[in-house]
Write a protein that binds this DNA or RNA. Structure first.
Lengths: 122, 122
DNA sequence: ACTATTCTTCTACGTTCGTAGTAGAAGTTC
DNA sequence: GAACTTCTACTACGAACGTAGAAGAATAGT
């Protein structure tokens, strides 16, 4: 399932405070000045897409995600690969290392992560 | 400037054979069965967005990109970071190493690339 | 119980996307 | 130069997106 930019915005907010009411999500979106009903609309659409569950408690709805951030991220990466990197990780990794300006710190963190992972999983 | 999925498709085709006519782009899109006019519409939109130039030669238009693949890729990565990875490379890299199932081969390629780059640039 | 606040549901409206048809101009073939 | 092919320009149209107002239902304060 595919998330639009605005949907990512609300999902990011929700993941940070779920389960949450629409109002809580709105407040957790400090940097944006969406109307309450806008948030509500997004939430409803996400429920409809099966990405969130909505549970009524009294007259309020409480929302919770059915999709973890990790899964959503994977699918976003997948979709980037498909459209922009010939569908392969290799291509993306190559780009990251060669064409993006990673700081020395980022590079060394990456190297370290790789080294660790090499041993632990495979 | 932002490319949609379909726009990426035509850009990928175009980068592979530019400068090219609409027909050439269509043919370079073997795996898709778009109508000629669909390609034409996409090209026109890309020209309007300033991503392509269109040059008439006789009654045909020849298209060429103003935006390199690398730049487009950077901006796609940037936009992924912003919506899904807190805007930081660190977060993406961490995800790649920890949460995506990179094959051993990919990992070692990545390690190698990093090692090389370590010496050559920066 | 009455009013103010808050929620929810429904509806709306402009924009971008994906996809393509139609019509007319230009070039090609015999 | 008449018929056929190919191009271009214009228009269309439904789906998804971004954004939000209006109206009505529930709750809360006094």
């Amino acid at each position: 399932m595919r998330l639009s930019d605005a949907e990512w915005k609300v999902m990011n907010a929700l993941w940070a405070c779920e389960p949450a009411t629409a109002r809580a999500v709105l407040e957790s979106l400090e940097d944006s000045d969406w109307a309450y009903t806008t948030v509500k609309t997004m939430l409803a659409r996400l429920v409809e897409k099966g990405i969130l569950t909505e549970e009524k408690s009294g007259n309020k709805s409480v929302y919770a995600s059915c999709m973890s951030r990790q899964v959503a991220r994977r699918s976003a990466v997948r979709s980037l690969l498909d459209k922009a990197f010939d569908g392969t990780f290799g291509s993306l990794l190559h780009h990251l290392v060669d064409d993006e300006r990673l700081s020395a710190k980022e590079k060394s963190a990456l190297r370290k992560a790789l080294a660790t992972r090499k041993r632990s999983s495979s």
